[in-house]
Simulated scan of single mutants.
Amino acid sequence: MDWSHVTYLRVLIRPVLIASITIFICVFWIQSNSSDIDIKSAQHGHQLAVQSVQLCPLISPRLIGWTNLSLEAMSAISKEDEGIVELRMKQSGVKPGGRYEPSRCQSRHKVAIIVPVRNRTEHLAVFLRYMHPFLQRQQLSYAIFVVEQSERSPFNRGMLMNIGFKEAQLSQEEYQCVILHDVDMLPEHDGNPYTCPEDGKPRQMAFSVDHWNNYNSVSWNFLGAVTAMSANDFQRINGYSNAFWGWGGEDDQLFQRTKSQNLTVVRAFDGTVSQVVHYKTMSHPRATPNPDRMSVINEGWKKFQTDGLVDLRYTRLSLKLEPLCTRIVVDIQPYNITT
């Protein structure tokens, strides 16, 4: 064997091997660092995207003002095809459970709308179809919780409101406030703010209603029909009383509870009656008043701390994330309210 050729090959191959190894190491280093750079770039891009979503304006540019809510208009809303309505709502951004948040800005308010019902199918259909576009024009982040009572006991609006509040909390969404809303009440003007009130200042919203003396203001101590309250304040007053079975009384005692905790009930636009704060009422048979409501109201001062959210008892029969609302069906029964 000619060893000179072997030596020559070693001399020739060694730098090639060294160069190949060097190139491999460089390529591996570049790829590894490129992945890190991509990850960091993606993270940075996400941060920039989050930062680029500005808060929604204090006054939404999407407001249209007054809406005609004549009997004919409401009838037309109720007769719309359900599938077409649900498709339109989905395209507008409404998610299952009746949840919505603006896509082009970050809402300043996260609101839970709580609606107690029983045997009000037609009213609920009109309410949901009307209120979603209304709330969206205000650029709110919101969800609509419909709490439906079974047939076994007299209607208890206050307890259903408490249940809606608790179920909204169980949804693990951090709602800043609740709007406690009767299903037969529709705001006529989208300049009527469904925003969250300040802590300590619950807002009485339905104080100018069509069937109450042709939109004249209700009494100063009325706190019902449509009321906005911060989540902190609703906890602070222990919610509604659970003791009012049948029509009437629970909103009177709600006002007492706010006063007992030194909360100041306010009205939109300082209580000025104008078209902006008008409400239209969907007609329905008048309920029979609860004959015991006055005695329950008079005894209520002694039970604020023990009758309400803290002793709430109910059986949830179903919870469905429907296209336009979170529907919660419950069974509730009278029980002894502790003193």
Rank of each mutant, 00 (worst) to 15 (best):
Q305S: 14
Q333R: 15
G93D: 02
Q169R: 15
C177M: 10
A19E: 04
M161F: 15
P202R: 03
H278M: 05
P289M: 08
T339S: 12
E72R: 07
T326H: 03
N262I: 01
I23V: 13
Q149K: 06
S208F: 09
W3Q: 07
V209N: 06
Y130G: 05
L63E: 06
S32Y: 14
F255P: 01
E72D: 12
L309K: 10
H284M: 11
K40F: 15
V273L: 09
G224L: 13
I237V: 13
R152N: 12
K280C: 04
E80I: 07
V50N: 09
P116L: 09
R10H: 01
Y8C: 01
S78Y: 05
D199C: 05
P323T: 01
K201P: 00
A73D: 12
F24P: 01
Q253M: 04
F244S: 00
M89A: 12
M131V: 05
F304L: 14
G98P: 04
E82A: 11
R257V: 00
Q204D: 10
W66H: 15
T264I: 15
N242H: 02
A228P: 02
K259G: 00
V146P: 03
P133E: 05
H181Y: 14
R120L: 14
V146M: 09
M74K: 10
T272S: 11
H44T: 15
R286K: 11
W301D: 01
L223H: 01
P323R: 02
L319Q: 14
Q261F: 05
G246Q: 08
R99S: 11
N242W: 03
L321S: 09
P116I: 07
S78M: 04
W245Q: 01
Y215E: 08
I25Q: 07
I163M: 00
T195V: 13
F155Q: 04
E299G: 15
F222P: 00
A206V: 03
D199P: 02
T264M: 11
L9V: 06
Y215W: 12
R157F: 12
V276F: 01
I337L: 05
Q51K: 14
Q256W: 02
Q51G: 15
V16R: 08
P289K: 09
R313Y: 03
K79G: 02
S103A: 14
G45V: 02
Y8R: 10
G300A: 13
W301C: 03
S274Y: 04
H123D: 14
K40Q: 15
L87Y: 05
R10T: 00
T339R: 08
A206H: 04
M159C: 03
A225S: 13
Q261D: 10
Y335K: 08
Q204G: 05
R129T: 15
E82T: 13
P289S: 08
M161H: 13
G224W: 08
V329M: 11
Q253D: 10
H181R: 08
I39H: 09
D251A: 04
G308S: 07
T326E: 10
I84Q: 12
S34N: 14
E72S: 11
N290R: 12
R88D: 13
G246C: 07
E86T: 05
E167A: 06
L321K: 10
E299Y: 06
S107D: 01
A287Q: 11
R14E: 04
E167P: 01
E198L: 13
V277P: 00
D2V: 06
T7H: 03
L170W: 10
K110I: 03
I163V: 13
I114T: 03
V265C: 06
A76W: 02
S20A: 14
D190Q: 13
V296M: 12
A225C: 06
K40D: 15
A143N: 07
